[in-house]
Structures are given as C-alpha cells and as structure tokens.
Nucleic acid binder design. Structure first.
Length: 591
RNA sequence: GCACCCGUAGCUCAACUGGAUAGAGCAUCUGACUACGAAUCAGAAGGCUAGGAGUUCGAAUCUCUUCGGGUGCACCA
C-alpha cells in the first residue's frame, strides 16, 4: 500500500471518529478528498483538503473542521506533526522512518514498484500507427507510434488488460495504386524500360525490391495480362511486403503490436452486412437526404436519397450515409464494423491514437460505438499534433512528392531509438512538437533525454566505485533492503525519497488521463532531485555517497542510489527507453 | 458558416484534472570544479495565465462571450 493510501485511510478514520463522537455531523455522505504532496515543501510532507471538501456537508467552516480532526491525526504513530494552513489545508509531517521504509519497498518491488491495480477490471484496446501499407514509416508517423506504445505500457503498469492493435486498410483505392506501381516495378525487373513513374503512382524506390521479388517468384507469368487478372494477387503480394517493411521499421523503435487486423478480411467475412443488420434492427437506418456540406464550394452537389444512420440520436451533428448512391458501402461502414468487432472481442475501452488531421473522426465514430454497444463501450481518441523536423536549425519540409521525406529509419539511425522515443514524449500530444536532430543528441541540461540518462549514469558510476569496496552480495537490492537506513536523514535525501514515493501516483494519474508524456516530465523532475543531491557532495565531501571510513553510512546511501536506479528504470520501461550505464563523450545519448 | 484543439515569463514548455505565494529549462546577471563524471548544481531577475463576465470557500483549470492561431467539416479513404 502506498504512503498516500495509508494516510488517506488514517484521515478517513479520523473523520469517522469525529462523526461517531458527535464532534462532526454530516448531512450528506463524505465527498472524496485527496492526500497529496503540497506544492511547497515547507508546508510539510503531505497535505489533505479533507476539511475543505467537508465544509458543505458538515455546515462548518473548513478551519473549524480541521481543528476537530487535528488532535485525532496527531495521535497517530506515523504522523509527527499536524498544521492547519491557508483556507483549511491540513498539512502533515511524517516520521523519517516512513521514507526510509519506502526505500526498502522500492528495492523489494524492483521495477514492479509503482504497479497499480486501478485498471484491473477494464479490457482496453489501443489502436495505433495503423499506417496504410503503401510505404515505409516516416517522421510524421513516429509520434503517434511512440505515444501509442507508451500508452500500452503505461496502462499495463496500471493494471489494465491491454491489447495493442494495428489496423490496416488493404481494401481501398490506395492499395490498388500500390499494386499498379508494383506491377510497373515488376515489369522493370523483367527488363522493360518503364521510364518515369507516372504521377498518381508511388515513386519511391522501396517498391523496386517488391517488383524484383515478384519477378523472382512468378517469372513472367503476369506479363501482358489484363489488370483484372493480376491486380488481386499482386496487391496481396505488395501489401504483404509493405506490412513486413513497416513491421521492421516499428521494430527499430521497439514497437510490437499484439494484433494486426485488416479491412479486407472483415469485408469478405460479412461483418459489414452483419453490423448493418444490427443497426437496422435497432431502427437506426432510414432513407433520406443530407443537407449540402457547409463551408465548401460544391458545384456538383445535388440532393440524393441515401441510406442513412441516425447518428444524430447519439450526439452527432448530422446523420451519416452508410451506403453511397451506387449502393456500395460508404467509407465509414468498415470503420463502424471494425469497432463492432472490438466490442465483440470484449473491449469496453477503445483508445485510438490518431493525427490531429483526423479531428472529425471522433464526432462520427463515437455515436457509432454508442449505438452498436448500447453505450457499454467508450471510445477515446488521442490526437497528436504534427512534428516539425529541423536539421541544422533549418525546418525540413516533409512531402511525399518531393521525395525528401525523412523516414523513421533515418531518425533512429541518427539519434537512436531511446532518444527518439523519449523526445516524442516530452510534450502533451496536442501541442505541436519541434524535432531538431541536433537538439536530441545534445549533451546539456537543455536536453531532457540527456538529463535523465545522465542521472542514471551517475548512479551507475557510484555503484562501479562502490564495487571496489564491497562484494556484489553486499550490493544486491535484497541485501541493501535489510540494512539500517537511519542515516538517510538529510533534507535533500528525504526530498529525493519523497519524489520517488510519488511514482505510483504519477502512474495512476497518467493512466487515468491517458497521458504517457507525464512519465517523461516526472523522470526529468526526479533526475533534478538527484542531481541536486549529488552536487551537495561536491560542496561538502561528507555528503558524498561513498564515505571511505564509514561502511554503514555508505551502504545506506547505496541503498538510496539503487532505489533511484529502480525508479528510473521503471519509468524508462514505460517510455520504452534503455537506461545507459555510462555516458562517455565518445558514446551517444542514444541507445 | 459550424465543430474540435490551442493561447501561461523574452523563447520552449509544466502546473498531479478545482487548491495554498502559477513552476522548470533556455537566454540575462551572481556564485560553486585538486571530478564518487561541473555534460552538473546553488541563487537573482522575469507573470493582469490573450481580454471580459459568471459558477464557489477557492479558477490557468469549469460555463458563457470576444479576440488571435491550428485542424477538420462528402456518397472521398
């Protein structure tokens, strides 16, 4: 149990006690209150707003309620001081042993430290990347990929039952274009001069290999044949090749989805008809005419009766067409069917990570999910804004046409997977992000990636030195968790421990908010606490971690060091970054 | 026209989802290396949280509104 929860229980008990003794009368159930670290360290170790939120139900001023609770809290063994401050905050001071024990907790739990169970009854699917299989992953895809993967890891740590999924569209017009380009490359591989790739097809060289592989497999079997004959098999071949390429790109940054789902299979096995029938049975389908689109010049628009879904009953601004005028499915239908499939598989929380250019998606899909699940499943979308790429301080234009598109591979090769991942998580997904190649590898305070890695490397450095004095057996987490930690008592040391004790709260808050970037901010903060403590040792040799003539003190401080390493590793694990033991000038920040 | 997102120190961003005196880094100014790695640390200065109104014990956060920026708004995929 975390310290916060222990204290929360104690406060609850003191409220109950006050009610039982008649000191406090509540006209309603006690509302939820929080126990959290105060903004100002001078206010104590923990603070609660309990007295303030009780004010209404108790019909008393917050400070008066605090006065009633204060003596009851003071009696408690864990609490060394109680102060009432400001509008009615109750500030608590805890005995140092609490924090010393927290170090033991960390050492014992190892990277499971901070694990939570808040998600244990929720089956959640995170759909991310989902890039169409028409080319390699490029810079524009990386942010969403990293956010999605970090979210999967974060939710798992918070106890959710998580599936990370990739959904690819292998049934639309784009993959036909892919197939035609592949066919051209195939003819090229057979020795034909195909000239320039015509506009509208995919110009990239990556399809040359697909063409030659196809020639290798099938010989000249398709040459001179009608498109009707070769389109389907070559499309399949090309899509498989693209997915293979994308998966190896994703592997470069450590991303491995649990499930890959494709659109074609869903269309072919009749899911769309089935879902349509379900909506029809619910009375949500009718034939009608949509108003003309607003804000766009539509010269060829004319009112046409279409098969519509009553999505406005579920909060949409308009009903949506499910069939085109030619009677074939509208593009939204496979999406609805896909989300039906997610529901059928038992997911009650569906999170999609999408680029900000899909902002209209949520308005359309939420009603559909509500309708097919009878409001039992919730759809959330994390929109991530564009990443502006800079090289040598100059913005790099990303365009498929001009061919100067920066690939994921290029990014990873230049700065390393860990640095790419960490950097992508140093901002709220909604804000635009500048990715400057020079900045990401810069070894200064200004670069959060470096700053956190440096803290970890410093910890490791101390342990390397310590291993000259102590045996490996003396330095295991298990051994260190058993020694006396009374010596961990300076303000800076305790501040660091308090920072680490926050880890579980950060994990829970970040998971509930579905905001993995908070982990990055936390790590930077924790690294700062550590660097601060380290420098005390520069000012005063008695505060260094290794004190040659005091083995007991040194071991206690090594326990602290090890616990810092544990928490940093635990955080890195969610970020998907590899901690570095050493950062020599001849090695990169990147891992 | 409508919807969604954003607007916080000169710059880049936080603020634990309604809490106390709004915090960090960069840049500016002061200080700390016979190095458990100073690639760091300590300090100073910097704010009408875009403007206005409301909700309540309490607002950067919630509501309304004005302004400014981004994205999207088809039977396309």
């Amino acid at each position: 149990m975390t310290i916060y929860r222990q204290i929360h229980d104690i406060v609850t008990a003191s409220i109950d006690e006050a009610v039982a003794s008649g000191d406090l009368t509540l006209s309603a159930a006690a509302p939820t209150f929080v126990v959290e670290p105060p903004r100002e360290a001078a206010h104590g170790d923990l603070a609660t707003n309990a007295a303030m939120v009780l004010a209404k139900a108790a019909g008393k001023a917050p400070r008066a309620i605090a006065d009633i609770l204060k003596p009851k809290l003071e009696k408690h063994a864990l609490i060394s001081g109680v102060e009432i401050a400001g509008p009615g905050f109750i500030n608590l001071r805890l005995h140092p042993q609490i924090w010393q024990n927290e170090i033991r907790e960390i050492l014992n739990a190892d990277t499971h430290y901070g694990d939570s169970t808040i998600g244990k009854d929720t089956k959640v699917i995170v759909e991310y990347v989902s890039v169409n299989p028409t080319g390699p992953m490029h810079a524009g895809h990386v942010r969403g990929a990293v956010i999605g993967d970090a979210l999967v890891r974060l939710l798992r740590k918070a106890g959710y039952d998580v599936t990370g999924e990739y959904y690819f569209n292998d049934a639309g017009a784009q993959v036909d274009v892919l197939a035609r380009t592949a066919f051209l490359r195939y003819r090229e591989a057979l020795g034909e001069d195909i000239g320039e790739i015509p506009a509208g097809l995919y110009p990239g060289d990556y399809l040359k290999e697909v063409g030659s592989d196809l020639a290798k497999r099938d010989g000249d079997k398709w040459r001179g044949k009608d498109e009707a004959e070769w389109l389907a098999p070559i499309r399949q071949f090309a899509v498989d090749a693209m997915m293979k390429m994308i998966r190896s790109d994703l592997d470069l940054i450590g991303i491995h989805h649990d499930v890959f789902t494709n659109e074609r299979e869903m269309i072919e096995n009749g899911t769309l008809e089935k879902v349509f029938k379900i909506l029809e049975d619910k009375g949500l389908i009718y034939t009608g005419t949509l108003p003309p689109p607003k804000g766009k010049e539509m010269e060829d628009w004319e009112p046409v009766p279409l098969t519509l879904f009553r999505s406005s009953q579920f909060g949409d601004s308009t009903d949506r067409a499910l069939k085109k005028r030619d009677g074939y499915w509208a593009y939204i239908m496979p999406d609805i069917a896909y989300h039906y499939d997610k529901m059928r598989r038992g997911f009650t929380l569906m999170i999609n990570v999408l680029g900000a250019d899909h902002s209209g998606y949520l308005e359309r899909m939420r009603p559909a999910v509500a309708a097919i699940s009878d409001n039992n499943a919730r759809l959330e979308v994390i929109f991530n804004s564009i990443v502006k790429v800079f090289k040598n301080g100059e913005p790099v234009k990303l365009s498929k046409r001009s061919g100067n598109l920066i690939t994921l591979r290029e990014m990873v090769e230049q700065v390393g997977a860990s640095a790419v991942r960490f950097f992508m998580l140093t901002r709220d997904p909604k804000s635009p992000l500048d990715f400057d190649f020079a900045k990401v590898v810069e070894q200064t305070r200004d670069n959060p990636v470096f700053y956190v890695q440096y803290a970890y490397a410093r910890c490791s450095s101390v342990l390397r030195h310590a291993s000259e004095i102590f045996t490996p057996e003396e330095l295991t987490n298990e051994a260190l968790s058993k020694i006396s930690l009374d010596a961990i008592s300076t303000e800076e040391e305790l501040l660091l421990v308090k920072g680490m004790a926050n880890w579980s709260r950060i994990v829970e808050a970040a998971a509930l908010a579905q905001e993995p970037h908070r982990i990055a901010f936390y790590l930077v903060e924790l690294a700062g606490l550590f660097h601060g403590l380290w420098n005390k040792g520069n000012d005063n040799a008695a505060l260094r971690f290794i004190i040659a003539d005091d083995k007991g003190l040194t071991l206690a401080r090594l326990a602290l060091i090890n616990s810092v390493r544990v928490v940093l590793r635990s955080g890195f694990a969610i970020m998907g970054c590899k901690p570095l033991e050493e950062l020599r000038s001849d090695t990169s920040v990147a891992a």
